[in-house]
Design a protein around this nucleic acid. Structure first.
Length: 227
DNA sequence: GCGACAG
DNA sequence: ATCTTGTCGC
């Protein structure tokens, strides 16, 4: 199987892709192992152009203390595989890795749009990103993929555990009042307990935490007016 | 067999 | 994800 940038080319073999996920998931570290205090953080997200023919990834590096944007990068590459629930990372990660490379420096912690370990085989895009880069990461998703949790209290910052098959995979977090909760899960080198706290620590007046919110704007098609 | 299914 | 303006509600 040929590959590009360390990634296997998509050959339609779903079973093989799932088997690879199981292997990679075994390398995920779910415990706090990142620089403290954090100096820099970064948000990552992906969008599509040309009716999906082009994948556009955005990376935004921020100062962890001031929240100031230190750098922003956008990377475009030809889309190589369709969206298949559960196999999202194989479709979006190549572009994200390119955007990361273009940042002047790697962040101490990465916030990735999508799930961390809250995935059927424990390897959502944030976890895959973490294992692939070795960087600490957290998954911030807008919807659930697997598992369920009770409705968190209406207060901002309230959260309830996301459970699946008897285990906790993440948190259902009310990042903002009157908004649907986010689904947060550890990606790599971040503990279950810290994942929700870290997301709230970098969430301001909007539903999404700043790193992901800014990356979302750059990756989204609506941003084509600026650069 | 049927429904669900990150982005 | 993406196609898309105004509009109802807190």
């Amino acid at each position: 199987m040929a590959e590009v940038a360390g990634f296997p080319d998509w050959d339609g073999d779903i079973a093989a892709a799932r088997a690879l996920q199981v292997e990679l998931a075994a390398r995920v570290v779910v415990r706090d192992d990142y620089r403290q205090p954090l100096r820099t953080i970064a948000g990552f997200d992906v969008g599509f152009e040309d009716d999906g023919a082009t994948t556009r990834a955005a990376a935004v590096l921020l100062d962890a203390d001031s929240g100031q944007v230190l750098a922003s990068e956008v990377a475009r590459i030809p889309t190589r595989m369709p969206y298949i629930p559960g196999l999202l990372s194989f479709r979006e990660l190549p572009a994200l890795l390119l955007a990361l490379e273009r940042l002047p420096q790697a962040p101490d912690l990465a916030f990735v749009d999508g799930h961390g370990i809250a995935h059927p085989r424990g390897l959502g895009i944030a976890a895959h990103f973490g294992v692939a880069t070795g960087l600490p990461s957290i998954g911030v998703a807008k919807k659930t993929l697997v598992g369920s949790g009770s409705e968190p209290h209406q207060m901002r910052g309230a959260y309830t555990p996301l459970r699946h098959e008897g285990a906790q995979l993440g948190w259902v977090l009310r990042s903002k009042v009157n908004c649907n909760p986010l689904v947060v899960s550890p990606g790599h080198r971040v503990s279950m307990a810290s994942s929700a706290d870290l997301v709230m620590r970098f969430t301001g007046k909007y539903r999404l935490p700043e790193p992901t919110r800014l990356a979302d704007r750059l990756a989204s098609r609506r941003d084509e007016g600026r650069g």
